[in-house]
């Protein structure tokens, strides 16, 4: 009887043993950071090529028309998947007092970074936002999103937008409502998905396809599988010097910039 008591006490202590906890959490950590076996899609943006307004406008238009993203009349209710911000805002840890004129106040194309360990997925209270294992894309299950906006507060890149009102009347007014892609409802959060619906069909994201049509836009955006060493993005990342947005925060962005 006494022996059993000691055994159960030991088992109880074992559960709180630090080594066991470390083992358990290391499993979780490797999961969150993307194991070698799982794929991770990524993008390389050439900042200089995107200085051209036509290039930036072409990809934003292609994306927003493809995904039923409305052009909200009130800027406070703006919804954006891919857009431009000044160099200082995009790279606050790169810009300094003597930033070259070439980059000073220049617009840089920004989109969701599809982070390796995304803050938005960690704070999501319903599990609506998650990191998908099959391609490393940070997805939103719209059926689960309750619109708490924790993810908007958590994302350091401002990549998420909230639907303050039903977007469909605005889309209908604009005449850009696409019937084969779902729009969103009031109270849902949305962001760039790396065009999962296109990837499923073996096509490139809409923005990447759009910049190729613009003169001078070839190579402005390169998309591919980061876990495949022979992909275009992997080759570019090996050859060129690239920077990432706010890398010190440790979320592991997967959109890279050639400065």
């Amino acid at each position: 009887m006494k022996g059993i008591g000691i055994a159960t006490a030991a088992a109880g202590l074992g559960c709180t043993f630090p080594i066991l906890r470390v083992l358990a959490s290391s499993n979780v950590a490797s999961h969150a950071q993307g194991e070698a076996s799982s794929r991770q899609m990524g993008m390389v943006v050439d900042i200089k090529k995107c200085f051209d307004e036509n290039v930036r406008r072409a990809c934003a238009r292609a994306c927003h028309e493809e995904h039923n993203v409305p052009d909200m009349p009130d800027p406070a209710e703006e919804i954006k998947w891919i857009w431009s911000e000044s160099y200082e805002h995009v790279f606050p840890d790169q810009a300094h007092a003597r930033t070259a004129d070439m980059y000073k106040d220049k617009p840089v194309l920004v989109l969701c970074n599809q982070c390796t360990s995304p803050a938005c997925a960690k704070v999501c209270i319903t599990g609506a936002t998650f990191k998908r294992e099959s391609d490393g894309i940070v997805m939103i299950d719209m059926h689960r999103c309750v619109g708490c906006r924790f993810c908007i507060a958590a994302c350091p890149y401002g990549a998420r937008s909230f639907n303050f009102r039903d977007p469909r009347p605005v889309l209908e007014e604009m005449g850009t409502l696409r019937e084969d892609y779902p729009s969103r409802v009031k109270g849902a959060v949305e962001k760039c998905t790396f065009c999962v619906e296109r990837l499923r069909e073996g096509r490139e994201p809409a923005c990447v396809e759009a910049v190729k049509q613009v003169p001078g836009g070839e190579g402005a955006l390169t998309f591919g599988d980061l876990s495949d060493p022979d992909s275009d993005v992997s080759r570019l990342l090996r050859e060129k010097h690239t920077i990432c947005r706010r890398i010190s925060l440790g979320f592991g962005p997967n959109v890279f910039y050639i400065a």
Binding site: F130, R132, S134, D135, I137, M139, D141, H143, E179, D180, V196, R200
Partner: peptide, 17 residues
């Protein structure tokens, strides 16, 4: 089908459209 498509990244057997 929604779970397979969104969470597992599979191709949809049938879509609402």
């Amino acid at each position: 089908i929604r779970d397979e498509v969104i969470h597992e990244g599979k191709k949809a057997e049938v879509k609402l459209k």
